[in-house]
Design a protein around this nucleic acid. Structure first.
Lengths: 276, 276
DNA sequence: CGGTGTGAAGTGTTTCACAGCT
DNA sequence: AGCTGTGAAACACTTCACACCG
């Protein structure tokens, strides 16, 4: 999942678990689809299947919102759509600004899923003076200089950062100073923000790395190869085994360390920078 | 966080908790930055700050990988970079295909963070025949017809789906049939895949909805307005209150339901479709 | 009956706090 | 003296299983 951080520590939002909140949009999407097909009611079983979760979890999730179902029947689709929308705050209109209009920023600006759920792109902002005025998704890109004014004039409280990593913290600081209290960060950096500001992070390369981890495990599972050897070595050291080893066929000799480990080879790397 | 699903149910990959795996890329990025600045060692405290987590968590995470630190000193940066890379499977090269070269697909193709960490974009694939041959990120787009051949020829096991929602399941089926076992899905749909195939989902609009939820809570917290009223109403119906109500200033009359709730207004909506 | 709503049990994750190594 | 590594406690989330109700 895209990883979140910096939510308010304690004070969990009036009883609804964070994990549940993260699933509400999923239910909402499934319900909207049913609603379009004019399905009047769904059982937890059916809806759970459509949302890709199990039904007990779904029922428990809904129980935090109230008793919105009918025993023996199921849930009224339209009614639930409304209740979840309200709970998520989607019955009101949220203006958002997107800062950093590179490939990704443009993709976001064009993304239909925003406009369709109570989010309105109030402005596209970029630091490149040459982009100013260029229309993206039918909207002129504005220069960073205008940032504070735009936010104030439109009462924006949610900002999306899709700048290169190097610019992200600086942009973030300006957004926060201008009054933004929720940030969706696509730049591969850890943002530091004052208390009271929410940051959620979406990191494309992290997701791939997690997949690679599992992929590697699959490969080593039945095929008899290096991966298996590594597994076995690690297995043999359950708790407090001698420090190094389990490094299997590592390039550096078992106990060496403190240099070598040549990896980093293929290219120059760097903490990765976003499109532009 | 981008949301994950469909990991293998039990059989958690040889002891390393999923939550830990999800943080390893974060540590890796912080370590890479230190490595570039030629910092030789870090304490858990420093590294944790750089990665945006707390130090106890970081130490516990590392303890699942083995004892790679030195008491009284800290961790050797290069050595840790290597160990984490190896654990994540990044010491090998992972060819990936990106299917759906719209705005988002193009952003992904251009994203430096992939190439820099063991991922190699093997092909860009799109269903639009007019795109075939067009270079994106210095690489010609290929037609969907070639999908199976490309995957086989390159031994690709990871696929990225950035097509519109409507096409995603179909593309997914073909990828899986062609031998792909890990999928990163950007389309706003639940994909169903056979056992043994991993799917991770990144959903832009879901992240915004989660932010909106918290944003709404903040607004209702001290300011005395409609948000507060809604909260109070909900509060008054702790467990088994009469079905409808707590709808506060809802558009539909309290007990009505089964239609109305006009929301869905602003635009035509629809389960949202990706850029293109 | 059929399906929701929910205590209670189970599982996973985070945090604490300190023993033990360098 | 300082910092890691880790049991144990606290907390969060999921799953079970069944009472209850329409």
């Amino acid at each position: 999942m895209a990883t979140g951080r910096t939510h308010r520590p304690a004070t969990r939002s009036r009883g609804i678990p964070e994990a549940t909140v993260a699933r509400l949009p999923l239910y909402l999407r499934a319900l909207t689809a049913l609603s379009e097909r004019s399905v009047p009611t769904v059982s937890s079983e059916e809806l759970a299947a459509a949302a890709g979760v199990n039904s007990a979890k779904l029922r428990k999730d809904f129980s935090y919102l109230g008793s919105y179902g009918t025993r023996g029947v199921g849930y009224d689709v339209e009614y639930l759509v409304y209740q979840i929308s309200r709970e998520l705050g989607l019955t009101q209109d949220w203006p958002v600004v997107i800062v950093g209009i590179g490939n990704l920023g443009a993709a976001l600006a064009n993304y239909g899923g925003f406009a369709s759920r109570g989010f309105r792109v109030a402005a596209l902002i970029d630091a490149d003076p040459n982009m100013a005025g260029t229309p993206v998704a039918g909207m002129p890109v504005q220069h960073t200089d205008e940032l504070e004014k735009i936010i104030e004039d439109n009462g924006v409280s949610i900002g999306v950062i899709s700048t290169p990593a190097g610019a992200a913290q600086q942009v973030c600081d300006r957004l926060v100073a201008a009054g933004i209290t929720s940030i969706l960060n696509f730049a591969p950096t850890v943002l530091s923000v004052p208390d009271g500001v929410d940051v959620r992070k979406v990191d494309l390369s992290i997701e791939l790395q997690i997949l690679a981890f599992h992929e590697q495990r699959k490969a080593g599972e039945e095929a008899g190869a290096e991966a298996v050897a590594a597994d076995a070595a690690a297995e043999a050291a359950p708790t407090d085994a001698p420090v190094a080893e389990s490094a299997a066929e590592a390039p550096a000799a078992p106990a060496v360390r403190a240099e070598t480990t040549d990896r980093k080879g293929p290219d120059g790397d760097v903490p990765a920078v976003m499109p532009a």
